[in-house]
Design a protein around this nucleic acid. Structure first.
Lengths: 215, 215
DNA sequence: ATTATCTATAGATCTATAGATAATGC
DNA sequence: ATTATCTATAGATCTATAGATAATGC
């Protein structure tokens, strides 16, 4: 138990890789709840250890710093969002209005994972730059899924022509309008039900594409 | 110097109101730089005092807690954004295409104040709920300026008919797409110049309105 | 006398680790 | 013997305040 190992880029003292994954899952589950409730900085490593069900000493066998735990949490959330979106997109592939379906599915993923996505918005900047960079790459990869989908729909002629840059920006817009439901929820949820939000935003976004090419 | 006074809701030990305002401006200017560079939690009250040019003891004559300083900073930023937007909107009032002008002016405010707006996104959640509430009210008031403008343009017949809720949501969208330039700047600024960003987004947003009413 | 500012530090953390103990497998 | 876990704590902060000093105005 002296050498340093790396699993998913995070150093650990523990040799058994399955154990590392299992314990880290335990830790991440405990930590994410605490981070959402109190924020990263107000959560202590002791609280995390206690909530995960072991001692502070053991915690540090699986990480080298508190920031590692935040990174693990952010990474798990992004993995879950990506999983949800990929699945949702395959479900949407068959509909009449594919674009509207994809928007709806993506927004519902944002709705379900609201608190988790908000956490990423709030705490990404608390990560050391090495981890922050990876989290931003995750974010970009997820937006990339939307870019691909839009490109596919556009090339099938179901959307007016848009150049590559416009498609890319449109994908960022959809992504951010989905996230908006999470970070303006304190206001939006008091005035719109998620169904209304999806409906209105879908109309707006579709209009966005219709107009893209005339001035 | 024993009683507690309140200036702009923040308690102070100091009696002279002009002095309080002046010192707080000094403190806010020093603090905002440190917060942007290091984040709120990694900045110590000592660093703030030093950067502002007085002792830690004096600092605490003007505030009762570190969080008060963050609130002051957020509030000043919002005041500055509001000032910028109000001014920009009056400048935009005369143009041919008022909506495009307003969007452009607002986006340029976001561009100029990028780092400051980003700070608000990152640190609002570090505020005690009493202050956080006020910051969110500020945010809402600024969005309100856009709502009013849109309503005015719509009622003059220059936009297709939209009900109140749609107008309101559209204003939130414009606001968030402006902010997007600040919180996705790590990506966007590498691919778009601000002029391109404004142009593309303006087209999208105008399209959004054109489409608002048909399904 | 009153107000503002400074120095020095109490008091309360919190992260991370060293060294001891328990569990597992040969 | 090796691996995993625990207890106890070193070491390093950091916020906020008490009490002393300097500056201002009557």
């Amino acid at each position: 138990m002296y050498g340093l190992h790396r699993i998913k880029d995070i150093p650990t003292q523990v040799k058994n890789p399955e154990l590392v994954e299992r314990r880290r899952r335990q830790i991440a589950e405990a930590a994410v709840k605490l981070f959402m409730a109190q924020g990263f900085h107000k959560t202590t490593t002791r609280q995390i250890a206690q909530a995960a069900g072991f001692s502070i000493g053991s915690l540090y066998e699986y990480f080298t710093s508190k920031e590692d735990i935040l990174y693990l949490v952010c990474d798990s959330i992004h993995a879950e969002v990506e999983r949800g979106l990929t699945e949702a997109m395959s479900r949407a592939a068959g509909g009449r209005n594919i674009l509207a379906e994809v928007i709806r599915e993506f927004f519902m993923v944002c709705h379900r994972m609201s608190d988790f996505i908000l956490l990423i918005y709030q705490e990404t900047h608390s990560l050391p730059s090495q981890w922050r960079k990876k989290v931003l790459e995750n974010e970009l990869r997820i937006t990339g899924l939307l870019v691909e989908t839009l490109a596919r729909i556009a090339s099938s002629g179901e959307l007016p022509y848009l150049d590559e840059r416009s498609i890319e920006l449109a994908a960022h817009n959809i992504s951010v309008l989905g996230h908006m439901w999470t970070f303006r929820r304190w206001y939006l949820a008091r005035h719109y039900r998620i169904e209304d939000y999806v409906k209105l935003q879908t109309e707006f976004i579709i209009g966005m594409f219709a107009q893209g090419r005339n001035d």
